[in-house]
């Protein structure tokens, strides 16, 4: 494995551990307000200072790691699951199912996921459940398209054709041979989906359309900091640094895996162009 993948992987694993056990590191409960200590700059007592309610920023960010990462991973998991099921079936079976699904996917791809999420959250209101639902609504489409294309390319490869000739069942062909061939590239895509999700969640919360107000979440911390931007910059700087560190980790990991795969000439040339195009950096994460 390339070195950058190791560095990236370490960062990502650290963050996942933080997400799981972060509250154990937090010196204070994330919702504890100390009204005598409002908007205090960073100090030994409060490493990252306190917010407008006197809550410890470090503790809030630690607790927020779980929310933000949890939601981002959940969305990515739903997307990947749907992509594997729908993409594999469509790619392998083809026919009317394939055509119908591809039409639906076309429609969803024409609607930028982030914008659709803004509109839907605006119409139906925010909350963690809605956030996951609306982000997953469009997220699966792009992944499915890629899985489908890869599967339908694999389908015509010699070894599958030979298998079919030997009388192997469709299911066996699909699960034992076609799908495993797709997984490595899907992994890279998934890492980028997670980055996109983190950005989307943070941005939506920042617009006040995200999770419920009591939930500590990175974007929510930024949203709260918005009216203190000029006089309490630390409320802005630390969450940004945390987002940057995590995203950087994911990028490095994805880059490393891609390099590793490229060297092994794993992907198929046409698909490689597609993959490059869609994943070169976080896909559609200009938010």
């Amino acid at each position: 494995m390339p070195r950058i993948a190791c560095i990236g992987g370490t960062i990502v694993i650290l963050f996942l551990l933080l997400g799981l056990t972060g509250e154990a590191f937090a010196p204070y409960p994330p919702a504890l307000s100390d009204y005598g200590n409002i908007l205090a700059p960073p100090s030994p007592g409060h490493w990252m200072g306190t917010d407008h309610l006197g809550r410890d920023l470090f503790s809030r960010l630690m607790a927020g790691t779980r929310t933000t990462l949890g939601l981002a991973l959940l969305v990515a998991a739903i997307d990947t699951f749907l992509a594997l099921v729908i993409g594999a079936l469509c790619g392998y079976l083809g026919g009317w199912l394939d055509r119908a699904m591809m039409r639906l996917i076309d429609a969803l791809l024409a609607l930028p996921g982030f914008l659709l999420a803004i509109c839907l959250l605006g119409i139906f209101g925010g909350g963690a459940l809605q956030l996951v639902l609306f982000l997953a609504l469009t997220g699966w489409a792009q992944l499915s398209r890629i899985v489908r294309n890869e599967i339908s390319a694999v389908k015509h490869l010699d070894f599958i054709t030979v298998n079919t000739a030997f009388g192997y069942s469709v299911a066996r062909n699909l699960f034992m041979h076609a799908l495993p061939a797709v997984i490595p590239s899907l992994l890279v895509l998934m890492l980028n989906t997670i980055v996109g999700n983190v950005f989307a969640i943070v941005s939506l919360s920042f617009l006040g359309l995200g999770v419920s107000p009591q939930t500590p979440e990175w974007g929510m911390v930024l949203f709260d900091a918005r009216s203190f931007f000029l006089n309490s910059p630390w409320l802005f700087v630390f969450p940004c640094a945390l987002i940057a560190a995590f995203t950087l980790g994911l990028h490095l990991l994805a880059d490393g895996i891609r390099e590793f795969l490229d060297r092994k000439r794993f992907l198929f040339p046409i698909e490689e162009v597609r993959m490059l195009a869609s994943t070169a950096s976080s896909c559609g994460s200009d938010t």
């Binding site: 919702a31 307000s33 309610l53 209101g125 925010g126 909350g127 107000p213």
Partner: peptide
């Protein structure tokens, strides 16, 4: 305000859940 109320009443033994709706 809601954060404060929930915080304040929690100290008095009453728990308040905040829910934000469109």
């Amino acid at each position: 305000t809601a954060d404060y109320l929930s915080d304040y009443f929690a100290k008095l033994g009453v728990s308040i859940r905040i829910e934000m709706l469109e």
